[in-house]
Amino acid sequence: MTRKQRRLYFVLLGLVALGAASALILTAISDSLVYFYTPSDLVGKPQPEGRRMRIGGLVQDHSVIRDGKSVTFVVTDLTHGLPVTYAGILPDLFREGQGVVVEGKMGTDGTFLAAEVLAKHDEKYMPKDVADALKKSGQWKEPKAN
């Protein structure tokens, strides 16, 4: 084997190793991606079962139902609503009319099964995606200046 052939084999072996490492990294990243949606984004679109996602919007007024172990409420972007079920301790700032982001999976019956509920911490904060969705729907209200 000549010196040129050995060098070529090492370069090819390095490229194969780099390709394998890239494939492993991309696979790991795609498994941990969590997509963000608003209720309007999900209307009439079937979602893959078991795929983790985030839903953002406001807790609809008069929709919170506490059932001992779980809480059911509706997340709305003021155009469409999505029922959410959560079994766990809600954040202290959780209430009707409050902005929330819930993370979990879509159930087979169309109810979102939340694994985590995040509530905004004051009236000035709103996740960018939620604010953009509210602006797009025409329901955005500018925060009041102090």
Rank of each mutant, 00 (worst) to 15 (best):
Gln60Ala: 14
Val84Asn: 02
Pro127Tyr: 01
Ala23Thr: 09
His80Pro: 06
Phe112Gly: 01
Ala28Glu: 11
Val74Phe: 05
Lys4Ala: 15
Asp92Pro: 00
Ala28Trp: 07
Ala131Arg: 07
Gly50Ile: 05
Pro127Glu: 04
Thr79Cys: 00
Gly44Lys: 07
Gly57Asp: 04
Leu58Met: 09
Ala20Ser: 14
Pro91Ser: 04
Thr108Pro: 00
Gly104Leu: 06
Asp67Glu: 09
Glu103His: 08
Phe73Gln: 02
Lys144Asp: 09
Arg66Ile: 01
Gly107Met: 14
Ala119Gly: 08
Pro39Phe: 04
Ala133Val: 08
Lys136Glu: 12
Gly110Cys: 14
Ser137Gln: 11
Leu26Met: 13
Lys128Leu: 06
Thr38Gly: 06
Arg54Lys: 14
Phe112Lys: 03
Ala20Cys: 12
Leu24Pro: 01
Glu116Gly: 02
Tyr35Arg: 11
Ser40Pro: 08
Gly44Ala: 13
Leu12Thr: 13
Gln47Ser: 07
Gln98Phe: 00
Ala133Leu: 06
Leu90Cys: 07
Pro91Trp: 01
Phe36Gln: 06
Gly97Asp: 09
Pro91Ile: 03
Arg51Leu: 15
Gly138Gln: 11
Ala131His: 00
Leu58Phe: 11
Leu82Cys: 03
Val75Gln: 00
Gln5Asp: 15
Leu12Lys: 10
Trp140Phe: 15
Ala87Gly: 10
Lys136Gln: 15
Leu93Asp: 12
